[in-house]
Nucleic acid binder design. Structure first.
Lengths: 255, 255
DNA sequence: CACTGAATGTTATAATTTTAACATTAACGC
DNA sequence: GCGTTAATGTTAAAATTATAACATTCAGTG
């Protein structure tokens, strides 16, 4: 019935998507309205969020809801990733087959996938799978294997081959380190094969990283900057930083 | 510090394991103590359960916590499955590689796996994977593929071969229908391959079903009763019912 | 069998959350 | 610009939940 109300709920839903609870107080402040308004949003509109003793909790099954209060810092950190993902979502088109990387960066993107009629998501991350499993309009393909708790993702020998067999359209890749000369890297070696395979088969390759990763090199190298078509990030100076050795094909988008 | 307290928490944890919230009132009643005692349990002992506005919520990451109140019926239904799983757990030994089937029957078993030093769990179900991912002492192997929301599980062409390649020790299988003559069946056809493969490779095959499944036949047949070594169920009359055509090898355990 | 101390229960009080009623503001058509 | 209505804000009262202090029960011990 109300547009703003729906917007606020979407906002809160994204804040909660990666888990945790949000106090009514903070939710109201985050949205810039009174507590009463949030209450009314929840009771008027159908929503997977529910209010337990003054705290907002997500009710997505099998959505993830660890129970701790979201700190203000976390909520703001989420805002950066949210902006990044909102920008990245513009590159998604109806019917796409997306490869979605592990990590926390791309989690806010998943909520936005419900705006499409039909999509396919390929991933090797448990937390991504959980968020996508709740979306009825998205086909989910999870690449299994041995679970690595550190990155909430799976690894297996056959993964490279499995990925190359799938018709992946767009690869959305995140990273723990990005450096012009020394390339793009992550923490865990088992992530290298799936990332590389996705980059190899996808028709469009997006790198989504917040600016804090620039100039950093992590143990596991997996690609050069020139392997990507698009970089989505949040620093004004990113275009200059990344195009120091200008590569004709790399387009930098600042969210 | 207190034995009973820890026991109560374990009980509540299992009740919450498959999601939902439990009102302090009901938790107290379930444990047969006062609300104050549950409060004290939560504040004294370290536990993944937390109290939000009078309701108990589980805080296992990436444990599943859909937010709705557990009805009394659900809580009691859980009690049957809990008993079944407690009985089934006695067949598990240190170092085992377990195949764990999809469905809700075996979920209460997963909490009990923390009592072992080292185990490996193989599964093709998302909800099982979520519960196991939280256990630091259990190696998790998830068989991926296309996600089927109806059973919260994955299916793929290669699954049969993947399972047969793993050194599975014990297969814990659940079912939607069990009939002496017409065999053991489930709802979804994509579950047939993994179940059969697990039965084929495992050294010990357990069928865990509550008695309400007896005499029922579901669309997808996957095994005969004689394919199992052990049946764990909750009906006194199970031994007679199931051994009407006595099979030398089938041992029936009533929980 | 009384003593002791831990565990649990009970009660009253304090704090918080929820609800409802009414006031205010903002948006929109005329 | 004015009137109308929906949306939001404010306040006070009601309901619920949390805390603290004290009472009771129970198990184990000398």
């Amino acid at each position: 019935m109300n547009d703003r109300s729906a917007q606020r709920l979407a906002m809160l839903q994204e804040a909660l998507a990666s888990g945790g609870t949000l106090h009514l107080r903070d939710a109201a402040e985050l949205c810039g309205v009174s507590e009463m308004t949030i209450r009314r949003d929840l009771s008027t509109q159908p929503s997977p969020i529910s209010l337990l003793g003054g705290r907002l909790v997500m009710a997505s099954y099998p959505g993830v809801t660890p129970v701790y209060d979201l700190t203000e810092q976390q909520a703001s950190h989420y805002q950066v990733k949210h902006r990044l993902c909102q920008r990245a979502a513009r590159f998604i088109e109806e019917g796409d087959t997306l490869f979605i990387d592990c990590g926390s960066t791309l989690i806010p993107l998943l909520g936005q996938l419900s705006h499409f009629r039909e999509l396919t998501v390929v991933t090797y991350a448990l937390n991504v799978a959980n968020s996508v499993a709740a979306l009825p309009n998205v086909r989910l393909v999870l690449l299994g294997g041995l679970f690595h708790a550190s990155s909430q993702s799976f690894g297996s020998d056959g993964m490279r081959a499995s990925i190359e067999r799938l018709g992946i359209n767009k690869a959305l890749i995140s990273a723990a380190g990005v450096d012009c000369e020394r390339g793009v890297s992550c923490f865990h070696f088992h992530e290298v094969a799936p990332k590389q395979a996705a980059i190899a088969t996808a028709m469009q390759r997006l790198l989504i990283v917040d600016a804090s990763k620039f100039g950093i090199v992590r143990p596991a190298y997996f690609a050069s900057l020139s392997d990507f078509d698009i970089v989505v990030t949040d620093d004004e100076r990113a275009p200059e930083l990344l195009n120091r050795h200008p590569q004709a094909s790399l387009s930098v988008t600042v969210a």
